[in-house]
Design a protein around this nucleic acid. Structure first.
Lengths: 142, 142
DNA sequence: ATGCAAAAGCAATCTTTTTGCGTTTATTTG
DNA sequence: CAAATAAACGCAAAAAGATTGCTTTTGCAT
């Protein structure tokens, strides 16, 4: 995998250092159609790294609004890159997710907007997550 | 806490045995407005029990369609009772959830139906989860 | 009352995630 | 370009969540 200039820019514009693993991680996210677990990332990395390093990078990315988190239905945390620039800490998922029960992948459906519902008075709404579960295209064919 | 006849019936109608802890657990769920984590349940139980027992009871309840699961934003699994009878294993959350960022409680909004979206062809949709995050009524007041 | 399968309890293990701390290294600055 | 410094890394340890195997207990049907 070749790390792009874009990965560099993301790091630079967030005041983060340009290290090999962080460049690689960002590239992995940019190349992925779906949200990744820590295990996914560990597998995708060329050279082996301490899981702690991965965790800390993910946290840093998340705090800087580069990634957002969503737990999959099993409660495992997954991460995906924020295509539209997310305000730090107040990330609002604007699009729906689809999680395949076969391959366990989480797809970001960038073009599927989350519909609103009527919320009782007294609640302060900060963000919404809309997640569909089922079988994805690819797994459907097998 | 007093276990009701209803808890008994739930167990009986699912071919499960009437044990003290399972009765208590069901009662806790029926008395709760929000989804509970394993820790919540452990705290709410009168007498102390092995966590394994709690896990196994939860799994059994979930397999029988008595409870449904949703992970909270931290990826911790939470459980809530199915008010409408859920077909086993194929539970479809019909209602939205609200998770308070302050008290971390997951509220089941029984009367808020999940709106549909247009899903690209080729996907098989099994269930949808709709989760709002923000501050709940109670926390709003403090 | 007896027998059997379900459920409970205990120990052990596994996975995921976090924390502390010493070392390395990218980047800034003189 | 060398020195300084704070960020990031790597290792060890441990906390937290969840599962598994096995033995004992117990609810319930016969």
């Amino acid at each position: 995998m070749e790390t792009t200039v874009k990965a560099e820019n993301i790091l630079k514009s967030n005041g983060l250092r340009k290290t090999q693993i962080r460049l690689e991680m960002l590239q992995i996210f940019m190349d992925s159609k779906h949200a990744l677990s820590v295990n996914d990332i560990e597998k995708d990395l060329k050279s082996s790294h301490d899981r702690v390093t991965i965790y800390r990078a993910l946290n840093s990315f998340e705090e800087n609004g580069i990634l957002h988190q969503t737990p999959d239905p099993n409660g495992n945390m997954r991460y995906a890159i924020c295509s539209d620039s997310c305000p730090e800490h107040v990330h609002q998922d604007k699009h729906a997710h689809f999680i395949c029960e076969e391959c366990n992948q989480t797809y970001c459906l960038e073009d599927v907007k989350i519909p609103d519902v009527q919320l009782e008075n007294g609640y302060q709404l900060n963000s919404i997550s809309y997640t569909m579960n089922g079988i994805c295209k690819e797994c459907q064919l097998n």
